[in-house]
């Protein structure tokens, strides 16, 4: 199979102005992935599926990822003039990176027996613009898994034929797999609570002396 760089350059040649990005992976398997802008994801997906050299005809997996807002520390050397003399300072600036949600697609080729190529779509933020483009029109197998990502992460897939909750019930509020999900306070007795559960156990089942 072609390398990701080759796929990227061919994609960009086929679809002008696509704006791809390669996301490296520092983990042991080192599987890099392609970040596609949601606005044109469907064109890119069609190309990946229909291109004779790639023929990625099988979408095995769609997953959601939640990236919280994070603070990045940036170190810089700054020269300042103090009392008429130039001095070099180490300066540490904190930059806030807004969080986003991600839909990750694992693509394989059944025909050419290669893969995976990993495709990512990112939402603008985690709150009101948590939207990406549904790739169900390209790979039918993405339908239920996109519904699952919608159900548990709250990623809205535009163009999905039937975007409803799939695991939780329809009346359920909130998205339970998000990292800032607060579970309902329904702790029940456990014989040996430990760590952070101990605090809950104290709150719900006070020791006789405090009660």
């Amino acid at each position: 199979m072609e390398t990701l760089e080759q796929i990227k350059s061919r994609l960009e040649a086929a679809i002008p102005g696509l704006g791809l990005e390669i996301q490296c992976n520092g983990a042991v398997p080192g599987q890099a992935s392609l970040v596609v802008p949601p606005a044109r994801a469907i064109e890119a997906a069609r190309f990946l599926r229909d291109d004779p050299r790639l023929a990625l005809d099988y979408c095995s997996n769609v997953s959601g990822v939640d990236w919280l807002d994070r603070v990045v520390e940036e170190h810089a050397r700054v020269t300042r003039v103090i009392d008429g003399r130039e001095r070099v300072f180490d300066e540490c600036r904190e930059r806030r990176v807004p969080g986003y949600l991600e839909a990750v697609y694992h693509l394989y080729s059944m025909r050419l027996k290669h893969g995976p190529v990993i495709l990512r779509q990112r939402t603008v933020n985690r709150v009101d613009q948590a939207r990406v483009t549904s790739l169900t029109p390209v790979w039918r197998s993405a339908e239920f898994q996109e519904r699952e990502a919608y159900d548990l992460f709250g990623i809205v897939f535009e163009g999905h034929p039937d975007l409803r909750r799939i695991l939780m019930w329809d009346e359920f509020r909130d998205y339970p797999m998000r990292k800032d999900y607060v579970e309902p306070d329904d702790y029940e007795y456990e014989p040996t609570p430990h760590d952070d559960l101990k605090e809950k156990a104290r709150r719900h089942y006070p020791i006789e002396a405090d009660a």
């Binding site: 019930w169 009346e171 909130d174 329904d186 104290r202 006789e208």
Partner: peptide, 22 residues
């Protein structure tokens, strides 16, 4: 089905565990 749990969360006529005090 409720927004977070089933409503009611238990049938209190049926399920009456003894109060547990740690």
């Amino acid at each position: 089905y409720g927004p977070y749990d089933l409503v009611p969360a238990k049938n209190t006529d049926l399920w009456r565990p003894k109060p547990i005090i740690r």
